Structure formats: C-alpha cells, structure tokens
Computed example of a mutant assay.
Amino acid sequence: MKPWRFIYSGLCDPYTNMAIDEAILLNYSSGRVLPTLRIYGWNPPAFSIGYSQKAEEVLDLERCKKEGVLFVRRITGGGIIFHHLEVTYSLTCFKQEINAFGSVKDGFKIICSFLLNTYKKLGLIPHFAIDIKPPALGKSPFCFSSYEDYDIMVGGKKIGGNAQKRKRDLIFQHGSIPLELKTDIFMPYLRNKIDGLEEKVCSLTEALGREITFEELADTIKKSFKETFSIDLIEQGLIPEEEKLALKLKKEKYATDDWNLKR
C-alpha cells in the first residue's frame, strides 16, 4: 500500500479549517497529492452545521452575531457540532487505499476501526454502537446526542462524531473527538435545548478520568492510524496549489452568508 501524507495543522479558524479540507479533497481527486490524514483544532471555538441543516433552525443567529460566535457549513452531512476543546481529523483517499470496500456503512466500520484502536491505546474499552445496542437516543439536530451503527461508545455513552462524503470511489471523512464537553458554553446558542446530554455523551477526559492534551491525543491518533492500516505516514505541508485554493475557498465560500445561510 502506498504511503499517505500526514498534515498537522494546529489550531485554525472555522472557515480556514473547512477550506483546507476541501482544498485537499480537490487536489487529491486531481492526482496532485498523496492520500492524506490531517489533524487540526479550532480557534476560536465555533459551530459547524451539516450540509443539509438550516442554520436558523438550529442556532440562535441573533445571539451568535451579537456575541461573535462563528459557525460554518460542512460539505458533509450530520448534525451541528460545537468545536472547542477537541481534536479533529480528516482523511481523503480512494477506497482501495484504505480497503474500504462494500457499502458506505461497511466503509464507516473499516475506517472508524482506527478510532477504536485509538481509544484502546489510551486504556479504554470502546465499542461500535451496533455491537452493544444501547437504548435509542432518537434523532437530534446535535451530532453528539444521536448515533449511527458505527459511532463509538465508551461506558455506554457516545464519544465524538464522524461524517463522510463520497463520490464514486473517492472518500472524504472527518470527525471530532472532544477532550472536554463544556455544555454551558454552547447550549445557550442552540435554538432547541437538549435535555440530559451528559447522560448520553462523554468527553475523553471524562472517559479516562484524567486530563489529556491535544498533543497526546493527536499523537495517539497518528500512531493508531499507521498501525491499523499498516500505512507509512509522511509528514508534509500543503502544496502551493492547495494553499492558494484554500485561501480562495475561505474568502469566496466558507466565510460567506451565501454558503452558511442560503442553502
């Protein structure tokens, strides 16, 4: 299996994060770069909403604007997420480069196996939701408070969330792993309040019973990815074409009301 590129982006604003992910996807699909695993964080903290969600239905837009809370629309589906104290990953590849054959659901199971191994490396006992059949959480506009078959559970609670976009054999997936969940910070900006969230979801700090740094989790994800898929990761930055495209996408797409509001 050919090597992958590894990019560590550090902390970026929400528009830059989504623009970089798409710039990688477009350059990879054009054959300019290796399949890529990227790890990044968010500064300032911000919401991302799923592609099909309407911002005005899930967020108090007036309060967000008044208090300077940013939000961005993703190219993937799923529910709204507040990105704060967390590590986010994204991966871009063709399905044969990660052996993610079969249905989309099969692909989720294969790809998310590196997350299972990440949690195991940290001493946790994770399971796919389908394997333990926890009580139904019901549908929710908030990503972390509902689950799919191959979401990951620790101690009976969902941890993190993942979303995927496919075009034929091309796969783009990204996911969020919360180091801490400070519900009092983001809950006031949601249009509909969520009851009992602490009983449904957990952060990594809660699951471990200790604090964990961004760097420790990022390094564990990287090691787990290499071992799970027997892949060599080559540390590189964005190529000039990606940097130029990311700036263009940020300015003309992700930082605009046309993209974030008028869908």
Results as ranks from 00 to 15, higher is better:
Ile171Ala: 03
Ile171Trp: 09
Phe172Tyr: 15
Gln173Thr: 04
His174Gly: 07
Ile177His: 00
Ile177Ser: 03
Pro178His: 08
Leu179Tyr: 07
Glu180Trp: 06
Glu180Lys: 15
Leu181Cys: 11
Leu181Asp: 05
Lys182Glu: 15
Thr183Phe: 09
Thr183His: 05
Asp184Asn: 13
Asp184Arg: 07
Ile185Glu: 09
Ile185Met: 05
Ile185His: 02
Ile185Ser: 04
Met187Ser: 12
Pro188Asn: 10
Pro188Tyr: 03
Tyr189Ile: 10
Leu190Cys: 11
Arg191Gly: 03
Arg191Cys: 00
Asn192Ile: 13
Lys193Ala: 14
Glu198Lys: 15
Glu198Met: 08
Glu199Phe: 09
Lys200Pro: 01
Lys200Arg: 15
Cys202Met: 08
Cys202His: 00
Cys202Gly: 08
Ser203Cys: 06
Ser203Pro: 13
Ser203Phe: 02
Ser203His: 07
Glu206Val: 03
Glu206Ala: 05
Ala207Met: 07
Ala207Glu: 11
Ala207His: 01
Leu208Lys: 01
Leu208Met: 08
Leu208Gly: 10
Leu208Phe: 06
Gly209Thr: 02
Gly209Trp: 06
Gly209Arg: 02
Gly209Met: 04
Glu211Arg: 14
Glu211Val: 11
Ile212Asp: 12
Ile212Thr: 12
Ile212Cys: 09
Thr213Gly: 13
Thr213Asp: 05
Phe214Thr: 14
Glu216Cys: 02
Glu216Asp: 11
Glu216Gly: 04
Ala218Leu: 01
Ala218Cys: 06
Asp219Trp: 00
Thr220Trp: 00
Thr220Arg: 02
Thr220Ser: 10
Thr220Glu: 06
Ile221Gly: 02
Lys222Leu: 02
Ser224Ile: 01
Ser224Leu: 00
Phe225Leu: 05
Phe225Pro: 04
Phe225Ile: 04
Phe225Ala: 08
Lys226Thr: 02
Lys226Asn: 02
Glu227Tyr: 00
Glu227Ala: 03
Glu227Ser: 06
Glu227His: 00
Thr228Trp: 01
Thr228Phe: 02
Thr228Asn: 04
Thr228Ala: 08
Thr228Gly: 05
Phe229Gly: 00
Phe229Tyr: 09
Ser230Tyr: 13
Ser230Leu: 05
Ser230Trp: 03
Ile231Arg: 08
Ile231Ser: 01
Ile231His: 03
Asp232His: 09
Asp232Met: 08
Asp232Thr: 12
Asp232Lys: 15
Asp232Trp: 04
Leu233Lys: 07
Leu233Val: 00
Leu233Ile: 01
Leu233Asn: 02
Ile234Tyr: 05
Ile234Gly: 07
Ile234Ser: 10
Glu235Thr: 03
Gln236Leu: 09
Gln236Asn: 04
Gln236Arg: 12
Gln236Gly: 01
Gly237Asp: 10
Leu238Pro: 01
Ile239Tyr: 11
Ile239Asp: 03
Pro240Ile: 11
Pro240Gly: 10
Glu241Ser: 12
Glu242Cys: 06
Glu242Ser: 05
Glu243Pro: 00
Glu243Asn: 03
Glu243Thr: 07
Leu245Asn: 12
Leu245Glu: 14
Leu245Met: 15
Ala246Tyr: 11
Ala246Gln: 05
Ala246Phe: 10
Leu247Glu: 15
Leu247Met: 09
Leu249Val: 10
Leu249Ala: 08
Lys250Leu: 10
Lys250Arg: 15
Lys251Gln: 14
Lys251Gly: 09
Glu252Cys: 03
Lys253Gly: 14
Lys253Asn: 14
Tyr254Asn: 06
Tyr254Val: 09
Tyr254Lys: 06
Ala255Trp: 11
Thr256His: 09
Thr256Met: 13
Thr256Pro: 09
Thr256Val: 10
Thr256Ile: 08
Asp257Val: 03
Asp257Gly: 14
Asp257Trp: 10
